[in-house]
Design a protein around this nucleic acid. Sequence first.
DNA 1: TTGTACGCGTTATCAT
DNA 2: ATGATAACGCGTACAA
Lengths: 353, 353
Amino acid sequence: MARKTVGIRDVAREAGVSVTTVSHILNDVESARASDETRERVRATAERLGYGANRIARSLRRQQSEMIGLLSEEIATTPHAGRIILGAQQAARERGLTLVLINTSRNQLDIQRDTDALLRQQVDGVLYATMYHREIALPRSLQSVPTVLIDSTSDDGSVPSVVPDEEGGAYAAVGELIQHGHRRIGFVTNIDDVPATRGRLAGYRRALGDAGLEFDESLVVAEQSETPGGYKASLAVLDRADRPSGLFCYNDRMAMGAYRAAAELGIRIPSDLSIVGFDNQELIAEGLYPALTTVALPHFEMGEWALDALAALMQDDAATEAVASYEPAVLSCPLVRRQSVAAPAEDGASSSD
Amino acid sequence: MARKTVGIRDVAREAGVSVTTVSHILNDVESARASDETRERVRATAERLGYGANRIARSLRRQQSEMIGLLSEEIATTPHAGRIILGAQQAARERGLTLVLINTSRNQLDIQRDTDALLRQQVDGVLYATMYHREIALPRSLQSVPTVLIDSTSDDGSVPSVVPDEEGGAYAAVGELIQHGHRRIGFVTNIDDVPATRGRLAGYRRALGDAGLEFDESLVVAEQSETPGGYKASLAVLDRADRPSGLFCYNDRMAMGAYRAAAELGIRIPSDLSIVGFDNQELIAEGLYPALTTVALPHFEMGEWALDALAALMQDDAATEAVASYEPAVLSCPLVRRQSVAAPAEDGASSSD
DNA sequence: TTGTACGCGTTATCAT
DNA sequence: ATGATAACGCGTACAA
């Protein structure tokens, strides 16, 4: 609704110039010539009157809404979504863009319907966010709009995307264990064959390899990526004579299960067993005792990156006639140190360096 | 950007009528008369062409954007935000409204700046969501726009608001314990004097009273409302001869601390001790073992309710000249049963009924 | 250097 | 029962 109807003509009249001049000055039009004195005066009166261009009229005229749509799956089921939204929102604001939100389900039909709805609102571009790192097929209707994927990659690389550096995160997690002197390190992983699973396993192996440690297949055990799965898997890997002194868990929920398994077996953390998780779900990581050292997913940064990429894409979409092929951007996953890692107990092993 | 430039005149030409007629028919204008045959034809061609009114042009003409702004604090720090957003978003979509998001901090200055930004985008109304139930002072700039508060109340009742039924939720939680036969029930609560604290305590007392149980002050102990606080408080209430057989915790994080305290004391859940939490943070409630029975906060429903209320407010804002005084709407908090409640162990007490 | 006038796509008023 | 046209507020080509 129109509350404060202070329009461009008000500014013009007040400053004693034409609307053209006001528009030119406020929009930094190159070709326009106005005396510095005039520029200053116009700026000042605009400021004084609290003038801001009516975005709707401007959008109609410019044929672009300056709105970008954030299409997100399962916004409500994970706290991760909030950070993505936040990152995107913040970046959007810096560019004067407005973020509009649409929740969608993973159902293909819904997605199609929801993207159509979004496009009907004249958004200039869309951010498509999935809550778990995976590959998706781009909805048809998005083919014609600048689009950037968050936490997923398109199967054909036709749009830019940003994903977490799963492998690097896992490498850091296992590295943390190694640096504390652990030589036998278990991996409680999940059973779904998604990029996160593959990447984290790769990081685990690479960290082991770089430290000259052997990969022992019996130390990696997969289960459902929830707390009960973590419990079950941990039990399997811990309830044996040659159990590892360090445990890397696929995510914090599984780590939560590992804590229970350890407790039941009378294994103490971190004195008898060090644990590192993944995801940095603060509710869990800070709630467990001792607090869980884990790896943070760069959700905020992915939201930010995606919006910047989208803005760039919107800029020169004309130039992008050629079907570009994008490599996903990978953002690093920093280690978050808490209390669950210590040096291994000294028993059989010789305390090397 | 304009992709599919199918406008109203295209429909008009194709259907062999004027744009006026098309507009009238598609917008269900009462006063307009058109033959059923024409209506049908217009509708059909619009459908066939995939016509949808340009929202920007419509907004300019109607002087209303059909956008509502969701101003939310700390969107990223709690998973609750997602559910509010989801509820609001869904309700918005049903009314053809678009939700735009702005994150803000709790800093008064930022809030002022952010609301101004929102208003400059011509939103028709705003939803202001806080993440924890409390009282706030309404930002000045919101005085002039239809506004609804979520999870907080304004100090002067000048705008509608919706909050959870803290007392009812607590009553249900404690009632669940009572129904299982518990007579000594502790309350691990928090130290902040917020509506949630007061309401949950009231519910606890009322449930006790209705069951003819006495209120024993030594059974309620307050601490910081995080996991460590829950641990500490639980230890205090459980480490004594006449310890309660049931425990109601202020929230799930504190309940998580209670689990640890119980484990350390060798008290088993639920056979030796039944626990009920509050918040239904699934990460915790489903991750704990045994899974935690708790009370769910109606975040989704609050988002929904707020948007509906806002829509109503926008409808007859002209009629609302008189300074109305609103009572907060309170939405119920349902009990979510999991595995942490059982009948108390039979020892001293005679098994009544 | 500045002002006038048109167009963006709709909806609403008024005439036919 | 239907149609012509002004207006919404801004940006800009073109005239002055």
